[in-house]
Amino acid sequence: MLRITDLYKSFGNVRVLDGLDLHVPEHSIFGFIGKNGSGKTTTMKTVLGLLKADSGTVEVAGEKVVYGNSPTNRHVGYLPDVPEFYSFMTAPEYLRFCGEITGMTNTDIKKRSGELLELVGLSGERHRIGGFSRGMKQRLGIAQALINSPRLLICDEPTSALDPVGRKEILDILTSAREKTTVIFSTHILSDVERICTDVAFLKDGKAELQGNISDVKSRYGIDEYSIETDCGDTVRALLERFPAMTHIRGKLSFRESDVCVFDVLAYISEKRLPTAKIERCEPTLESLFMEAESK
């Protein structure tokens, strides 16, 4: 659906995108993860033709994006990080305006805006947008992005400024939008990605790392971690002494397979007959992957 090849962009002397390659498959929910200032918004604006790349190509649905008035935008819905609407309009009026400028017919606009207001929970809202809360604006933002039934929905940090309830609402709306569109959203909140994304990419130093399907990424890049739980202080002391690479937090010891061989640990425990409550292999989390990628 979206293919970015070898994209470079600098602001002054600062190189933000350094040969970015990105592939977003159709009907995926694509989590685009990176620290603040890592170039997420820059990438998105380039995809929308709002920024001019120094070099490289961006294709949406097989069509090249050009700077300025990009015709590819008819396939795309965009939700900026802080969406701003004409505050003197009401939500239905704004959707009608959006429908009109995308060239939809009046009957389509009526039907579609009714559906979308229902979807985002703003039907029956008769106040002007000027009095909307952040969450309401974010939901209206999704509605306006979906008005022309885009094939690609781009959301720039849609959940960062919201409270847990607002975040859940937005994530639910994005999940339900997946049936008809490909969703790509940037974030630094990893739990959101875990919750709804099918695919993921980490943006670091202007390049995409750990890219692909979430479970693939986890199995490919994840390093197995083990944890040992025990109530016995002697066990902790003995293990830490024998295996200094272990970390200790509140009666729980954990280690990575790369640092300590799990069989050595098991052998040591049985040899010394150390009392333990639980020995467990932990699934790698995005959090640990991200921290790993970040520290490299």
Partner: peptide, 15 residues
């Protein structure tokens, strides 16, 4: 300043 034009333009409104 408010960024309201951005949304209209990404909707395909010619500049």
């Amino acid at each position: 300043a408010s960024g309201t034009l951005l949304l209209s333009l990404t909707k395909g409104l010619e500049r």
